[in-house]
Amino acid sequence: MSQEPFFLVATLLFSIGLIGVMSRRNLFAVYISIELMLSAINLILVTFSRLLGDMGGSVIVLLLLAVIAAEAAVFLAMIIQLARAKKTIDSDYFSHLRQPKESL
């Protein structure tokens, strides 16, 4: 079989993740969308590794899996802390870093 279907699936997955990051307000859905985008990159790298017969792409994917695990730990800790502070995971409620109006 040819490589175009793999690239098509990876592109679709990346687009769905990007749409999720742009349109959802639920912090958990945003986190999973970021993970989906990273996985789409993984699929592209593995397809290229198979296409060129070179193991370098597979090694990068192995390193990226560790990055995904690190990102999951930090992001979930952040979500738990934010949910504990405000009893919600709606991203509209988290505006501590916004500049106050009177100082403008």
Binding site: F28, A69, I80, K87, T88
Partner: peptide, 25 residues
């Protein structure tokens, strides 16, 4: 890593914060 560790960690986080349906965005 992905299916075993990350998804299980996510599910544990979901059950820890334990949001009711009314508190979802």
């Amino acid at each position: 890593i992905s299916a075993g560790a990350v998804v299980v960690l996510s599910l544990i986080a979901v059950t820890t914060i334990n949001l009711k349906r009314d508190n979802l965005p």
